[in-house]
Amino acid sequence: MSNYDRINDLKDILDLLYEKLGEFEKELIMSSNKSANFEVKQRIKREIIPAIRKYETEYWELYPQEAIIISDEEAETQLVKVEQAVVSIEQIPSNAYPSALIDLLQEIRDKLDKQDKAASAKLKVVLPLIPAIASYELEMETQGLMSKTWENIKEIVRR
């Protein structure tokens, strides 16, 4: 299977997962049953969101970087948000999250600190790492700064 075929498969999978997430969110809004709502929230948190992040990570790892066209100005704005999200996560006591998250944060820091790359190049390199951090944010029930940033970046790239 070629990368192009896998990217298309991943896009279809993600579309289905986002549709499923939307249906669960509608169910939460329309239902007054607290027990059922708790179960739906747990399914979203433990099944849907981790699956979305897993497939998003693979999607962005396979997505051809040359196809991503982002101006340096736009990339710089998003990188500032990524930096703010990294700082906010780092302020949480380190025993509150897994060591894999620390490794991902360090990897993002290393990529952001490279002085020889343009902002758009840095953002392209960081893209595959962001879904995993957003997933950890959900597990830690933090503010979700990385998740919000990730949503903005996805919209910019898909334009």
Results as ranks from 00 to 15, higher is better:
120 S>P: 08
7 I>H: 07
40 V>Q: 04
10 L>I: 00
10 L>R: 06
148 K>I: 04
149 T>Q: 12
143 Q>Y: 10
67 A>S: 11
36 A>Y: 15
109 R>I: 03
40 V>K: 12
68 I>S: 01
49 I>Y: 10
90 E>T: 04
33 N>Y: 09
39 E>P: 03
2 S>V: 03
36 A>D: 13
135 S>P: 01
114 K>Y: 14
9 D>M: 05
144 G>K: 12
59 Y>E: 05
81 K>D: 07
108 I>Y: 10
9 D>R: 09
6 R>Q: 04
138 L>M: 11
145 L>Y: 14
13 I>F: 05
124 K>A: 01
99 S>M: 13
110 D>Q: 15
97 Y>V: 02
54 K>H: 05
118 A>W: 10
133 I>E: 11
98 P>N: 10
6 R>W: 07
118 A>G: 03
149 T>A: 14
156 I>K: 15
120 S>A: 09
147 S>T: 02
122 K>D: 02
9 D>V: 00
100 A>I: 13
34 K>Q: 07
158 R>S: 14
13 I>M: 12
107 E>P: 04
64 P>N: 07
135 S>E: 10
51 A>C: 02
112 L>E: 05
127 L>N: 03
32 S>R: 15
13 I>P: 11
51 A>E: 06
147 S>A: 15
143 Q>T: 13
38 F>S: 08
29 I>G: 08
139 E>L: 12
129 L>E: 05
70 I>G: 01
101 L>E: 03
131 P>F: 10
147 S>K: 13
76 E>S: 12
159 R>D: 01
100 A>N: 13
127 L>D: 03
148 K>W: 08
140 M>S: 01
87 V>C: 09
103 D>R: 12
42 Q>D: 12
97 Y>S: 02
25 E>T: 02
124 K>M: 05
114 K>I: 14
47 E>I: 05
128 P>Y: 10
12 D>R: 15
63 Y>W: 10
95 N>C: 09
156 I>H: 14
